[in-house]
């Protein structure tokens, strides 16, 4: 099976703090991978390295075998890597629809006319259609999180979709709707990496689970095995052995 993404011995420090510590893993095409780990473990940083928002100090990142370690973020989006930000970063002065239009037009390199219908569908799937004409700056935190997801989808993430803690704060019903949306994307063959603390939602979608702690990969495997492992229970769930 071809690997959409590989990280080989990737490291990143902020000053003296090693936030990504010799990380290696691969994501096969079509897989949904979950990432868990305590706050500050370096999960979001990992996304920023994959998208090119940060450059690693060492190691190599490839998309479909192509070395992208030094490729700028803008180019990686156009290669088909869409991402949501954990702390929403909407274009506040644009409407919700324009946020998507910008993402679709530039992420896919198309004219607005070609992507308008797609954007409307994505707004519908992410339950944002009723806010389509509102300025993104006027959205509640929940809707901002929805917009993150919607905008990531709009960029055309044919290669890889990265979702960073999008289920927090949702009601059970909303969470199920979100899971259904992600499952539908996954069913269409989209490769997904999802960082999430809401474990039942995460585990209902992903086939593989990766555990990160202090910037290190401390486990990767089937969700039930990972969840059952002593290391994860100690470190992630904070249970005393």
């Amino acid at each position: 099976m071809t690997d959409v993404l590989t990280l080989t011995n990737v490291s990143k420090s902020f000053g003296a703090l090693k936030v990504t510590d010799d990380v290696s893993f691969a994501v096969p095409k079509g897989q949904a991978l979950g990432i868990i780990g305590p706050n500050g473990a370096g999960k979001s940083t990992l996304f920023n390295l994959i998208t090119g928002n940060f450059l690693p100090d060492a190691g190599k990142i490839t998309f479909l075998g192509q070395d992208v370690t030094r490729v700028p973020a803008m180019t990686r989006v156009r290669m088909g890597v869409g991402r949501s930000f954990q702390i929403p970063q909407p274009f506040e002065g644009l409407t919700v629809f324009e946020n998507l239009l910008t993402a679709a037009a530039f992420g896919q390199g198309k004219h607005e006319g070609e992507v308008e219908a797609d954007c409307a569908l994505i707004l519908q799937d992410t339950e944002l259609l009723r806010r389509a004409n509102d300025l993104a700056g006027s959205l509640s935190l929940l809707d901002r999180k929805r917009l993150e997801m919607a905008r990531a989808m709009a960029t055309g993430p044919d290669l890889l979709l990265l979702l960073d803690e999008i289920a927090g704060g949702l009601t059970e019903g909303e969470c199920q709707a979100l899971v259904a949306t992600i499952k539908a994307l996954h069913a269409k063959g989209t490769t997904i990496i999802w960082i999430e603390h809401v474990l039942h939602a995460l585990n209902s979608v992903v086939e593989q689970l990766l555990v990160l702690d202090f910037g290190k990969v401390i486990g990767i495997g089937a969700p039930d095995e990972i969840m059952a492992s002593r290391e994860v229970r100690e470190i992630y769930l904070g249970l005393e052995a």
């Binding site: 928002n53 973020a73 989006v77 909407p90 274009f91 644009l94 530039f106 992420g107 390199g109 960029t155």
Partner: peptide, 16 residues
Amino acid sequence: AALRDNDNAARSVGVD
């Protein structure tokens, strides 16, 4: 407009 609002996010959706 996107760049003015948030240049990090703008680059992340493919804006040059």
